[in-house]
């Protein structure tokens, strides 16, 4: 579904991604690990179309479409979802209004009629249970005053609502206690199917105890330098990143 070839990207003139290649097929879970500054978050930003980053070389196709030519909203409507490392607070915009607008914009893109208020609320009720999202949170402004764990749960809730084909979890485990981690991972696993795929970006291995990857990639200096089975994550946990740095550093 996703084909990344020789991707180079920069921010403020500084090159972060330097020839990244990655192929993701339906049903797969890919973990991307790496030391700080390797380019993990840049990858998710580039895939979702963050205007702060400029792609200087390479290509990304999603089901054959040139992803880089699409606006952030069209990428979402095509089925790409990113769970933010730092979800943004939007005071004054209610979760209900935000989600209804998003769901209906997706439906419009697919040529479907907007959901009625009651259909929408029913859908919301069902998906909320999946991530044990408190009713009170759903009635508040987007992420406003949410705790770190609530924000991450809210991200997975949005993922459940939008039913993406490819979800990118950007450091979803950062700042989570073990209970919140379990709930978030449970939600992600429940949403998993043979038709969708996930890219799990993480610095630590512990999330991968809950979301088991098919492949583990090591990102270093803007490129994937090593790919292995899930056991590679354990090795990284044990040995740290120094051996990677030694092996692939200049």
């Amino acid at each position: 579904m996703l084909e990344i070839k020789n991707l180079h990207a920069e921010i403020n003139g500084k090159e972060i991604l330097r020839g990244l290649d990655l192929t993701v097929k339906p049903g797969e879970v890919h973990a991307i690990m790496g030391p700080n500054g390797a380019g993990k978050s840049t990858l998710s930003s580039v895939l979702t179309g963050n205007p702060a980053f400029t792609v200087t070389e390479g290509s990304v196709t999603f089901y054959g479409k040139d992803l880089l030519a699409l606006s952030p909203e069209d990428r979402s409507r095509e089925g790409i979802f990113m769970s933010f490392q730092y979800p943004v607070e939007i005071p004054g915009v209610s979760m209900v209004n935000f989600m209804r607008t998003a769901v209906n914009e997706h439906r419009k893109y697919k040529g479907l009629e907007p959901l009625s208020a009651s259909e929408f609320l029913k859908m919301m009720r069902q998906k909320k249970e999946l991530v044990e999202l408190d009713n009170k949170l759903a009635n508040r402004s987007v992420n406003e005053g949410f705790s770190g764990g609530e924000k991450k749960r809210n991200e997975i809730f949005q993922m459940a609502m939008l039913e993406p084909r490819l979800s990118i979890l950007d450091e979803t485990d950062s700042g989570l206690d073990i209970d919140a981690l379990r709930i978030v991972a449970h939600g992600v696993n429940r949403l998993k199917s043979a038709d969708n795929a996930s890219i799990v970006i993480t610095h630590y291995q512990r999330l991968l105890d809950y979301i088991v990857p098919d492949f583990v990639h090591v990102l270093y200096k803007g490129r994937i330098v090593k790919t292995g089975p899930k056991e590679l994550a354990l090795e990284l946990e044990e040995r740290g990143y120094d051996w990677i740095k030694k092996e692939f550093g200049e």
Partner: peptide, 20 residues
Amino acid sequence: FYMRTRGIGEAEARMLLLLA
């Protein structure tokens, strides 16, 4: 940007923010 990554178009996102 956050709203656009959820599929909300630029004009609509702007509207939601202004109304808020």
